[in-house]
Design a protein around this nucleic acid. Sequence first.
DNA 1: TAAAATTGTGGGTAGTTGTGGGTTAATTAC
DNA 2: GTAATTAACCCACAACTACCCACAATTTTA
Lengths: 154, 154
Amino acid sequence: MTISENTFIGEYKYSLDSKGRINIPSKFRQCLSIENDSTFVISRGIDFCIYAYPLVTWQGIEHNLKNLSSLSSTNRSFIRNTVRYASPTKYDKQGRISITQSLIDFAKLDKEILIIGVVNKLEIWNPKQLKLIDDKLSKIDQASYENLSEKIIL
Amino acid sequence: MTISENTFIGEYKYSLDSKGRINIPSKFRQCLSIENDSTFVISRGIDFCIYAYPLVTWQGIEHNLKNLSSLSSTNRSFIRNTVRYASPTKYDKQGRISITQSLIDFAKLDKEILIIGVVNKLEIWNPKQLKLIDDKLSKIDQASYENLSEKIIL
DNA sequence: TAAAATTGTGGGTAGTTGTGGGTTAATTAC
DNA sequence: GTAATTAACCCACAACTACCCACAATTTTA
């Protein structure tokens, strides 16, 4: 049952099969609006995970990138690095996308996979990697967390 | 009789059945406004209980999260940890929601269940856990209570 | 007080979901 | 051009979930 279109929450444990495929949770597939044509754009994430954007969300990002001037070298590099590892992937009849070897290597994916809906996109993790990041952050950032939780009432 | 929509008070004792379902008190169901489509979003609470938000209340939280930039690592982690254990659940014809195993484990739920309305959301407890927390808090927090009483007139 | 409606709990069944693997088409290498 | 490798597509099946019905206990209504 979907909350709102192209918006994802929750985490799911799946496995990367011998052919490099990962199941997209059924709940997430149901959230994907029809115009996405069953397609996610997968790319390198920020903390050694893989991002999977609904096609239309990605198109929005592309639109924003077009408005960045290429005269700035920072911009050029940002645009290049945002786009160079991205590729659209349609999921098959069983609901699986296949992940390129380059992204599997980047995210150090093993058989065990964690897919997390983080509102506007999905994150695909090796659970061990996520734990590393989590532990590191929880130590240093207690103060900023409390700051945030004053702004957002849970 | 409802006091105001999507606002809950009072506590009820129920049981977790063999299929992981919990009844939502009829009073609370009646409080839920029609636009929620009989749906709560359940997630990890603070102190080892489960929170259940009316769908629309949760959508407000999501809206706030969408306004946080993902370029900050603190924000990314905050967003991830807020939504990763959340899932929408529509109650069935008998008024029960099913709780994921992951949340049952987190809240150490047993057969005996306590559901408490805490104004904007519900808390689902193992009564034993709640007692532990209560005992701990009543010892240390006399001062903070007096502090609060300046802000809230009872 | 009796009848009717509502509420909480148990359980059965049909459909859905996740996963493995086989077959054919497309791409690449030689 | 042909062989080898890769990718796309399809089928199968066990496990799980959503949906339905049943019924006792309680509350409401007449």
